[in-house]
Design a protein around this nucleic acid. Structure first.
Lengths: 155, 155
DNA sequence: TGGGTAAATATGGGCGTCAATGGTATTGAC
DNA sequence: GTCAATACCATTGACGCCCATATTTACCCA
């Protein structure tokens, strides 16, 4: 089970703690760092979450830009400089940093939204609104996804 | 047996459980995750079902979009964020989540409709109506499907 | 070809376990 | 000493596991 799937809404207690969904923990558990990497999304009012492996993939991909290039600078500032390692406690909870709570507009509850290789953390109502918008658009545009052939198939 | 074929109508008990047809289970049994992945169709009033391998294919295919691109966002919200991992119990039953029951308009029974690589879950009457519609359209339009050469055949 | 038997599937309900949650105690930094 | 982070413990409610039963399908043999 290697993907982040489904959406879970968990409570944020008064200390700022929130349980990471058990299935997300399972996905992350095979990694060296026991916790999640989180940074503020630069496209939406939410937090991005992932494992260390994905961070390394991002890093590799960023190498495609030249060192000292403006793109490289921006990516570094937006992601690597902002990323924090949130270790979970024995019960599987992480402590959400203040600025992250603020950026996502979190209050009582937090929605963990699976995105396949990564996930996001939203204020539940805000996500609901965003999702409704996307669904309405999908109903009209009927997006399609070109399926890659099954791995292992001859060309 | 690697395909989802035929249509089965099973009862939904008062706990919201329903037996996954034995032949569908056989198709899914060779997968790491013992259960089905289900998400709300974004074009019809039904649930889409598949195995984890198909989800991984979707994930791989979605990688063709750049990370943080709008297309990637939409696909994620519509599929990965909505997908639930429904493990089956020792008897081969899954527990249908409330909002999925609602979306598909399920009540006493659920129809498992094979679609080859995937399947769908319908309210039986609703499916009957949809099928009649598709059949009527086919009679008029005569759809065709370009056949791929058999695997192993000379190019 | 038909009946009888056995196996597999589908269904219903009780109970234990674990994830989520809330609170308290302990540790360590400033 | 104060504050904050984290470990520890206790509660509860959903869901996964088990058993028991019904119904269908498959199989065998007369």
């Amino acid at each position: 089970m290697g993907l982040f799937l489904s959406t879970f809404v968990n409570k944020v207690d008064r200390k700022g703690r929130v349980s990471v969904p058990a299935s997300f923990r399972a996905t992350l558990s095979q990694q060296p760092f026991q916790g999640v990497i989180a940074y503020r999304s630069f496209t939406a009012s939410c937090a991005e979450g992932c494992g260390m492996d994905f961070m390394e993939r991002l890093s590799d991909s960023a190498q495609n830009f030249d060192a000292f290039s403006p793109e490289q600078e921006d990516i570094s500032a937006l992601i690597f400089a902002d990323a924090r390692q949130l270790a979970w406690d024995p019960e599987g909870r992480i402590l959400l940093p203040e600025d992250l709570i603020e950026h996502a507009g979190l209050n009582e509850t937090a929605a963990f939204v699976g995105k396949g290789q990564t996930f996001q953390i939203w204020q539940p109502e805000a996500y609901k609104a965003m999702e409704a918008e996307i669904r309405a658009r999908a109903l009209k545009n009927r997006p399609t996804l070109p399926l890659k052939p099954k791995a292992g198939d001859g060309k």
